[in-house]
Design a protein around this nucleic acid. Structure first.
Lengths: 341, 341
DNA sequence: TTGAAAGCGGTACCAT
DNA sequence: ATGGTACCGCTTTCAA
């Protein structure tokens, strides 16, 4: 492509009648430069349409000025909240936040992490604690602060801001039990591609077993992200196989909504005939009729705490990795009211 | 921070007993290198934990190897679909896709675009056609292919893959009219922050006026993204001010869902007592009860066509900017069934 | 406050 | 197939 070469600092310097070094200083703040010279330089830069090349400045200064973050999906209230927390937490820094999306695929995550690390981010935030072996190696050897989120990995690479997905599942199982349900199923989370959903399911089923209940009432929803209609189909499947099931936890709130709508279409009232619970404190769970019992994981705080860790790490000579288990809380709503049968 | 300096190509070269130049070639494909040497080099690189510095290689080769994309929100099915289309369309290239999110704020977009352009992307994709003056200047002068999406800007900067949001609004107004509704409102889209939502509203109201109807029945929902509960409140507000309103279009499907739930809570059946329509062909609109009439904008295709344009542009000596109006289609569902009163 | 020189870590180009 | 050299565009460092 024979596109015109963008102007360089030398071009600006020539136009302003100063040395490139002076331009470099004038364009940054906190550096010594007479306001007169600076004005002249800014004018020249503007006229030329000059844009600083951070490829070059990064190479020279050894500061890329950005934080990398991988997210599984960009259609998810939860990750959106985490991103907001992180983004707002980094507002008062000079760090840009660049995102890459993995589509819930750890192979894709590996590719993405590799290409991020080549660009030498100041820190890297990943969603989840399950990575390919190679990806784990990359991160561990990267030399930059690594923060794993939304999970509690067994072998943390660096810092962690998360919660136990298994515990979230357990929490919900016990809630349904306490409300009188005994024949309880789980919808979604089969595939190991979404490790966090899988962990929730595992924790949920283990709790059922510990409570002496049947832990085989499971319906799959295909690969994540779980669509509402996939969850609706899974509910049908569950009821076909276990017609006496009284309640189900779904891997996410949108899934729970999909399943609940299927209940309604089948003439089952919720929770009168069938109780539903979700995960994630999504907008849809508080607005649906009935509102859906869910688990709130403090997604925003995951982000803001992560920002804090990054800022500390970049300040410190020898940053300490820290592991934060933020826990999660049950939000009880009408969809899982006490059993009446 | 006194972090250890990562190994460089020279380190790998020394370890493998070859010149840096040979390492450079061995690490790329499609270059001449004996398989024996290459193996030796790869081994050395792996042992040292070497990761190519694309800051440096980009500076030298003048190829950053990434496409930048700005998105307003990462909690939105529509943008997620566009991203998937773009991402899959770029799979067979060596281009990474890096995302930045603007939170529906064109000032934030300006900052983001500036920092993206400093990193010299191979192309830049922006959502929307409304930018700050400065941002427009940056993009126009960037020298890289610019693709504006999800809109039909009056002064395109480069290529465009979008549709007319105003036309989408008009389409829906005419549909409601044809189904017998005469007292019709609009929920959301007040703020100019979300230009696309604003355009839909403007087109909708203009069509009402052209049809000889009252075009003042508007309820605001605050800044985007419009939450379900904000839309529910707006519905209440609309009915308080115009109790005889028969139908409303909402700025998005989640908003429509929120408004519809509010109808149900107030004992209004949909569409019997009040008709609802949305925008965006979101999952929630096809799964809710009743399903919601919406407008499908072919979000995935916006992404895949954009990928195509990028590939063409990077191949060509003199890339041609192209403007694609993909249009949008009405999807009629039960929530806006023919008026019965 | 300003400038000159050196180099950040790679690749293009030209030799061998 | 491999190596040497210049240089990408900027900042660091040192000197004036």
């Amino acid at each position: 492509m024979a596109r015109p070469k963008p102007p360089t600092m030398a071009d600006v310097a020539a136009a302003a009648g100063v040395s490139p070094m002076t331009v470099s200083r004038a364009l940054r703040k906190g550096t010594s430069a007479s306001s007169e010279t600076r004005a002249k330089i800014l004018k020249a830069a503007d006229e030329l349409g000059y844009v600083l090349d951070s490829t070059a400045s990064g190479l020279s200064s050894r500061h890329s000025g950005f934080v990398a973050m991988t997210i599984p999906s960009i259609n998810n209230t939860n990750f959106a909240d985490t991103l907001r927390g992180l983004s707002e937490g980094l507002k008062n820094t000079n760090l840009d936040l660049l995102l890459g999306y993995t589509n819930y695929d750890i192979m894709e995550e590996e590719r993405l992490v590799r290409s991020f690390l080549r660009r030498r981010p100041e820190a890297i935030v990943v969603t989840g604690g399950n990575h390919t072996e190679q990806c784990h190696k990359y991160l561990a050897a990267s030399g930059v602060p690594v923060i794993e989120t939304w999970d509690l990995p067994k072998n943390p690479i660096g810092s962690v801001v998360g919660f136990s997905n298994a515990q979230a599942g357990e929490l919900m199982a016990r809630h349904l039990f306490e409300n009188g349900y005994r024949k309880i199923g789980f919808i979604g989370g089969y595939t190991q591609r979404d490790t966090r959903g899988y962990d929730r399911r595992t924790g949920f089923l283990k709790a059922l077993k510990d409570l002496g209940l049947d832990d085989t009432r499971v319906a799959d929803t295909g690969p994540p992200p779980t669509s509402m209609s996939a969850a609706a189909n899974a509910l049908t499947d569950l009821l076909n196989r276990y017609p006496d099931t009284q309640a189900a936890m779904c891997v996410s709130d949108p899934a729970a909504f999909g399943a609940m709508m299927e209940c309604h279409r089948r003439g089952l009232s919720v929770p009168g005939d069938f109780a539903i619970a979700g995960f994630g404190a999504d907008d849809v769970s508080s607005n649906s009729i009935p509102p859906i019992t869910t688990i709130d994981v403090g997604a925003y705080m995951i982000g803001s705490n992560t920002a804090q860790i990054i800022k500390e790490a970049l300040k410190d000579e020898t940053p300490q990795a820290c592991v934060q288990n933020l826990g999660c809380t049950l939000t009880v709503r009408a969809s899982s009211g006490k059993i009446t049968r």
